[in-house]
Simulated scan of single mutants.
Amino acid sequence: MSPLPQELFDAIIDQVRDKETLKACALVATSFLSPSRRNLFREIQLFGVVIGDREPSATLAEFPHLVSYIRDLTIYVWDLVSENILAMAVILRSVQSIESLVIYGGAECWSSLGDEASSALLDCLSRPSLRRLELLYVGSVPAAVISAATAIPVVSFNYVHVDMREEISEQLHASAPAPRLRHLILDAGSEVRSICDFLLHPRNPPYTQQIERLEVRINQPNASHFERIMAACAATLKYLAVNPEDIIQLPLLPSVLEVEIKVWVGYDRRLPAFFSQNISQIASSLPLAETITLVVFVDLVRLGPEIEWADEAPLPIFGPSFMDRTQLLHLRRVHCILRRQSTFGDISALFYSFVPAMESTMPGLRGTGILRCTLDNPPYLAP
């Protein structure tokens, strides 16, 4: 018997991130085996191609006791071969404590899964432990899957198309789970219309009426669909993140306390032309907003020396007369974050010109303690 408690071994091994080190730890002693496996198999990615001698799905299907360790599962559906589809179905039916599920697909990927895998995936969505679901580039998704997804607290739909060829049935309505959706993430794309049409279908349960956090990337062709979603959850929405590609139109959102707006800055280091109008729209549509977070993405891939930030006219809402405002009466913080768009380069030097640029754009915030600028510049690891 070891003189040290098992909890100490568990705590130490939980800090290990390297897979090879975890494999070595699993061979040290019986007391190391379970915590090593727990961390080795916590996050699993399943592909349709063989990696090395065996594909992970084949190993997990053969040794089902390892599936119990899975908490975060990512499945790349587009290139699954038939035997791996069956193995995936076995895994999906076995993960009882899954917390996060990500599915990458293709244009007609759902039909390629077959009845067994589709049924297993639908069963997996009903796990009480599942807290987050991400569907990315998944076409022809049955309406029953979207209905099941609304029972998950955090859901992200990125270029997801709902198969609406069959009319919403009474059976689907009767079998719909109680909505638990609190955080919805919607990306742009022509497919967003099918998501909105399903979520807001008059014969469906009120899927959107408990949403507290909403993240949307708005483009002009689909702006009206995003407006419908925002209006539908206006009564409960507390946090809104918008990634606009043009001027936005927001409905009245009387409960939103925090808003985040993302912008991309080009090589001229100038905010988009529509940015000022969007800030004005936020000021008029979010009367109780307490925090505005501005995330500014920059790309350093350019030839020649870095240029200074361009001089910009002050934003009207944050001009010198800000303290005499009639809008944003509850505003307590404007947080400007400089973030690197690509994985290359260092933007630390650029931050020193970013701060005075933001102060110049919002002169009414100087000396108020409201404006805060920070740098988000993760270290670049050379290949």
Rank of each mutant, 00 (worst) to 15 (best):
T343E: 03
T361Y: 04
L27N: 12
R302L: 10
G319C: 12
S348E: 08
L331R: 02
F318P: 01
E312N: 05
A29S: 14
P64Q: 10
T208H: 00
G52T: 06
G364H: 02
R54D: 13
P272F: 07
V256F: 03
E166G: 13
S360M: 02
L381I: 15
M164Y: 12
G105D: 09
A357M: 06
T150N: 01
W78E: 11
W78L: 08
A58W: 09
T74W: 05
V259F: 03
R325D: 14
K262C: 15
G345W: 01
M230L: 08
P142T: 09
H65S: 14
D14W: 05
R42D: 06
P128G: 08
P128Q: 08
N158I: 12
S36V: 07
Y352R: 15
R165E: 15
A148D: 01
P251G: 00
L250P: 00
I75L: 11
S2F: 15
K238H: 11
A313I: 13
C196S: 11
A149L: 09
A29M: 11
R165M: 15
E55G: 11
L122V: 05
H65K: 14
L214T: 04
P179V: 01
P202Q: 02
S284T: 09
A273C: 12
R37K: 15
Y267F: 06
L136Y: 14
H161C: 14
P205C: 01
V192N: 04
M230Y: 04
F297Y: 15
N204C: 08
R71C: 05
V154Y: 08
V141L: 11
A382F: 10
E359G: 04
Q209W: 09
A313F: 12
V77W: 02
P305F: 01
V95R: 00
K238N: 09
F63H: 09
I152E: 00
K23I: 10
D79A: 07
A241R: 11
F354E: 01
V67L: 06
N278H: 05
I44C: 06
